[in-house]
């Protein structure tokens, strides 16, 4: 029982991200409305971002800013005392790029709405086949 509890405590964060990712993927596959698909894509991205950030976490470590790092006199830096900065860097840029791609996706939906007067995928498909 103790082993199972340890297993759950050490893994439950991943399960949360997988569930978030499943929600996003379901929205992207099943939902007919293009805006809902974009929302699904963003939920998916959030799951990936949370996954990466949780990889960077370290027990008994603080955030990756060297304490008393001003000036020349700083203490010896040990890697176990600071979290892994690399996932933070990757996700920092990923968030901004996600916002930018969201802008492009919304621009495309506006364009589609101008053309077809609808955002429902099946109606757009019917219109395309009818031509």
């Amino acid at each position: 029982m103790d082993g199972l509890f340890d297993f759950i405590v050490s893994k439950y964060n991943y399960w949360g991200y997988v569930v978030l990712m499943m929600i996003g993927m379901y929205a992207m596959i099943v939902k007919k409305n293009l805006v809902k698909k974009i929302i699904g894509m963003n939920i998916f991205q959030t799951a990936i971002i949370l996954f990466y950030v949780s990889i960077g976490a370290k027990r008994d470590a603080t955030l990756p800013i060297i304490a008393h790092g001003h000036g020349d006199a700083h203490h010896a830096v040990h890697a176990v005392d600071y979290m892994n900065p690399l996932p933070h860097v990757l996700m920092l840029t990923a968030i901004v790029v996600a916002v930018a791609t969201l802008g492009v996706a919304l621009a495309l939906t506006i364009k589609i709405y101008k053309q077809y007067n609808t955002l429902e995928e099946d109606e757009i498909n019917a219109r395309l086949r009818g031509r």
């Binding site: 964060n13 949780s54 960077g56 976490a57 370290k58 027990r59």
Partner: peptide
């Protein structure tokens, strides 16, 4: 979660 010896760290 939070393992200091994980491959990423």
């Amino acid at each position: 979660w939070g393992d200091p010896a994980s491959p990423a760290s």
